[in-house]
Design a protein around this nucleic acid. Structure first.
Length: 889
RNA sequence: GGACGGUUAGCUCAAUGGGAGAGCACUCGCUUCACGUGUGAGGGGUUGCAGGUUCGAGCCCUGUACCGUCCACCA
């Protein structure tokens, strides 16, 4: 039974209905299936605090395109979804939430707080998932996971214990990045260096036992001097050689500190003397450890000065800075203050200036783990698209520091370390030990810290598939194929997944990493909450449809590049959906109730063969582009084919036959051939379009082919040799050239559309005349497109009156009697213009061909091509002159 | 201080070394029976600058300017 599309394209109702149909049909679900090859993508798990933003929309659109495409290609395509507990992000949100109800985190305690977190997750954790559905994401929701569900938590424990036993995880007092606002450590990846205007304070430290000599140091952080335990100079610095080993008076602190020599000091920078504060500067920390210096912590966790700071105790670090500078000035020890811009580490979440502190924390030793991850890209097991991101990946890995994984948060995976209250013994184990293995007493308590949220995400590609259990899924779907993510989280996530994958499974967790850029606003600014320039994808979907949004996000941008978001672009995308909607509706209106018989391509008429040949080529090219992840180029080709070739030309040409009486050539019906071609090409084009615009393509496809359940499981088209018709492509190209030529002339002459003329087409020779006659014959009544009263295909221009307008084609010239077109002078001017243009072309072309270097060195085909062009120019020129002669010129 | 990306039409961006393109915007037409969310015809560019390689350069090489991004322990 023939079906019809709704009169108007309404994405809203359509998309909701189709998504439900897909879910009900179970098309998103993948199973272990030995008969097919697997194709796997793990979805970067969005935070449970998340609201869908343009970054998610882009990221998930790209993944959905790939997964839908591979599914159609016959792979068992698994898109593994899930959400991330997002330790700090969620904890902050829940604290805020509780605060609004007058509840304080610390008052209710850990257990109670975690209950609220889980409650919060139940309440809001699914929100982003439902938003991803609106986008059309065909993820296997039956397999949805959560980083803190039982399986993922088991994986975390397993990895922690394994790495601990191997000595790769250790607890130690090291310098860490401390966020005084969030009250937790953060990893290097979470520190953002921001240039800030500050000062260089030059301070004199008196030398013990010398009245007049000082050591002048320069610092950007004078308040940390209370924690100084040395001053360092470069061992090769002649200026200070005699100072090494001397003691200095540390002003305001009432202590003395030594001068030491360390090559870390740059002779050229500042004064060449550096105050060393091991407890509050990463470099100083290293220097301090090398020289066995004391680490004096002078700050509380909230960045106020602690009890070791005398009169400054209790002051905020910046308050103390002012006070100390003032006091130094009063003592006459402040030499000068020089403005200085420097990069300050800030917490990427809250923007607070990070305080380096020495704290006992848990770390992952990176040196050994990094090795296979580095090797992976060097031997090609792992590739980045675009390739340039390999360098960024490598650069980070080659300079990696140990990863601080403990966080002073409650929401997350708690570190499985237990301490004996009585003897201090530490036990790392899956379960809490009942008794202390050392002293035998029973007062054990668990480490209060939790793990960095990225510790669990690092395991995502295999933990979601069942690891550490040996599941059939893990065996079949792992390693995954492509990871799609933004360049901004290569450090946080991609790297950690890779080294974790190698360490735990011996394999790279994925073969390719497809990197995309940021979606910016129309002014090129990052979308951000504070700027208020964010565009809500859901609102865009609501107004224009998910298909339009998706098309917008992949059109016209290359992998890895940022893009700007324009509503004009969304509108254009929506218009495209509307265009194909109406074209399809037109085709379906013309289809008969009964089925059209299958046809053999070789029995078709030239125009049919042409469009078949074109979609055949487009199919091949699109597939090649997609193989190279050039999704923007691929969709551009589909778009152009559908709009410019199929709608603007083929449908228009096919109309000649649809609207006239049927006729049979050989054993093929005119109309049936057109209808079969329309239907076949449209169906195939919808398949190509489906990964990009799943909803509209599904609706059209299933309406066009009422027997088909869904386009989702249809076969991805492949190139067919028997659909290649170069000869017909050439013929239709000539026809199009003729139509365009006539339109242009009529426009130039201001001929009203109503005015029809005679049209004479003169072939160069008999063979061409016959070919043209047969072509025009096969097209049906093409006079409408040519604005013709009658079309005469003839062998000689003698039959035409002298005064006429011509359109010159490769093998023929078309003439329109001038008297029907009004303006003689205008036509002469036009011919002269054309003639001059030909002269230029002939000069250019013959210039090239007269260059012996060109003819001898350029490829033969190129030279031949140029010769053919020149020949055509000359013929055209000749005909123009001929025409001018008819006007007596 | 390193590394990377960009510089092409008014705007946003494309273009395996072989006559510079698209979308939007602009100009001038069209109530053509699928679509005005449409359709036809146009205008508009010394491809940042300077060299080089090549028969031939937007594309390759060198240098340079500007914009942007990432990394980095010059206190």
């Amino acid at each position: 039974m023939k079906k019809e599309l709704a009169k108007t394209y309404d994405p809203k109702g359509l998309e909701e209905r189709l998504y439900k149909k897909w879910l009900d049909g179970g098309y998103f679900h993948a199973e272990v299936n030995p008969d097919r090859k697997p194709f796997t993508i793990v979805m970067p798990p969005p935070n449970i605090t998340g609201q869908l933003h343009m970054g998610h929309a882009l990221d998930n659109t790209l993944q959905d395109i790939l997964i839908r495409w591979k599914r159609m290609q016959g792979y068992e395509a698994l898109w593994q979804p899930g959400t991330d507990h997002a330790a700090i992000a969620t904890e902050v949100k829940v604290i805020q939430h509780l605060k609004e109800q007058g509840i304080d985190k610390d008052e209710i305690g850990r257990e109670e707080f975690l209950k609220h977190c889980w409650e919060w997750r139940r309440e809001y954790g699914g929100r982003i998932v439902s938003q991803l559905c609106k986008l059309g994401s065909s993820a296997d929701w039956e397999r949805e996971r959560f980083t803190m569900d039982e399986g993922c938590s088991d994986a975390v424990m397993e990895v922690f214990l394994k790495l601990y036993e191997k000595g790769y995880i250790y607890k130690g007092s090291r310098i860490v990045n401390w966020c005084p606002k969030c009250q937790t450590t953060i990893s290097d990846a979470e520190v953002e260096h921001v240039d800030q205007d500050g000062f260089f304070w030059h301070i004199n430290y008196p030398i013990v036992g010398e009245e007049v000599r000082f050591v002048e140091i320069a610092t950007t952080r004078p308040e940390t001097m209370l924690g100084d335990t040395a001053v360092a100079v470069n061992p090769d610095d002649e200026r200070y050689k005699d100072l090494v080993g001397k003691m200095l008076e540390l002003p305001l602190a009432g202590r003395t500190i030594p001068v030491i020599a360390d090559s870390y000091v740059d002779k050229e920078f500042g004064t060449g003397c550096v105050k060393i504060t091991p407890a509050h500067d990463p470099n100083d920390f290293e220097v301090g450890r090398r020289h066995g210096l004391e680490e004096i912590c002078i700050l509380n966790d909230d960045a106020t000065m602690n009890g070791k700071c005398g009169k400054y105790t209790g002051m905020d670090r910046y308050e103390a800075r002012k006070a100390i500078v003032k006091d130094l000035e009063d003592l006459g020890l402040l030499v000068k203050v020089v403005p200085h811009t420097h990069a300050v580490g800030t917490h990427d979440r809250c923007g607070t200036t990070v305080e380096p502190m020495v704290k006992p924390q848990w770390f992952v030793r990176m040196d050994e783990l990094a090795k296979p991850a580095i090797q992976a890209v060097k031997n090609g097991d792992l590739t980045f698209v675009p390739e340039r991101y390999t360098k960024i990946y490598l650069n980070w890995l080659e300079n990696i520091h140990d990863w601080c994984i403990s966080r002073q948060l409650w929401w997350g995976h708690r570190i499985p370390a237990y301490y004996c209250d009585d003897c201090g013994e530490m036990v790392v184990a899956k379960e809490a030990p009942a008794v202390c293995p050392k002293c035998g007493r029973t007062h054990m308590h668990q480490d209060p810290d939790t793990l960095d949220t990225w510790f669990s995400s690092a395991l995502w590609p295999f933990s979601t598939l069942g690891w550490p259990k040996k599941t059939p899924e893990l065996d079949y779907f792992y390693p995954t194929d492509v990871l799609v993510t933004g360049y901004d989280i290569i450090f946080f996530w991609v790297i950690r997944m890779v080294f974790s994958g190698y360490e735990q499974t011996g394999k790279s967790p994925f073969h390719h990493v497809l990197i995309h850029g940021l979606v910016r606003d129309s002014l090129g600014r990052k979308m951000s909450k504070s700027l208020g320039n964010g565009i809500d994808p859901l609102e865009v979907i609501d107004e224009y449809g998910a298909d339009a949004l998706r098309l917008t996000l992949v059109t016209g941008n290359a992998p890895g590049n940022d893009m700007r978001f324009y509503f004009e672009q969304v509108e254009a995308s929506r218009n495209f959906a509307n265009k194909i909607w109406n074209a399809s509706r037109f085709i379906m209106m013309n289809l008969p109730e009964e089925d059209i018989p299958e046809m053999d391509a070789k029995d078709l008429f030239p125009a049919d063969k042409w469009i078949l040949s074109r979609i055949n080529t487009v199919t091949r090219e699109v597939t090649e582009n997609m193989d190279r992840y050039e999704l923007g180029i691929a969709v551009q080709k589909i778009h152009d084919f559908l709009w410019d070739e199929f709608c603007d030309w083929y449908i228009e040409i096919a109309k000649f036959r649809l609207t006239s009486d049927d006729s049979v050539r050989g054993n093929v019906s005119w109309k049936a051939a057109a209808l079969w071609t329309l239907k076949t090409v449209l169906a195939q084009a919808m398949k190509l379009l489906h990964p990009y615009m799943p909803f509209v393509s599904e609706e059209i496809y299933c309406t066009l082919l009422p027997g088909e359940e869904t386009i989702m499981t249809s076969d991805w088209p492949v190139y067919k040799e028997e659909w290649s018709f170069p000869e017909e492509e050439r013929q239709i190209a000539a026809f199009m050239e003729l139509v365009r030529g006539i339109r242009a002339i009529r426009m130039e002459m201001n001929v009203p559309a109503k005015t029809k003329t005679d049209l004479f087409v003169v072939g160069k020779n008999l063979e061409i005349v016959n070919e043209l006659r047969s072509l025009f014959d096969s097209l049906g009544d093409s006079s409408r497109m040519l604005f013709a009263k009658a079309i005469h295909i003839i062998g000689s221009k003698d039959e035409i009156g002298d005064e006429s307008v011509s359109v010159v084609l490769s093998d023929a010239t078309a003439y329109i009697p001038l008297d029907e077109l009004v303006d003689r002078e205008k036509e002469i001017a036009r011919l002269k213009d054309e003639s001059a243009k030909m002269d230029r072309e002939i000069a250019r072309s013959s210039g090239m061909l007269n260059n012996p270097n060109f003819t001898s060195k350029a490829p033969a085909a190129k030279v031949e091509e140029e010769r053919a062009k020149l020949e055509k120019y000359r013929a055209t020129k000749h005909q123009i002159l001929d025409q001018l002669a008819r006007y007596g010129l």
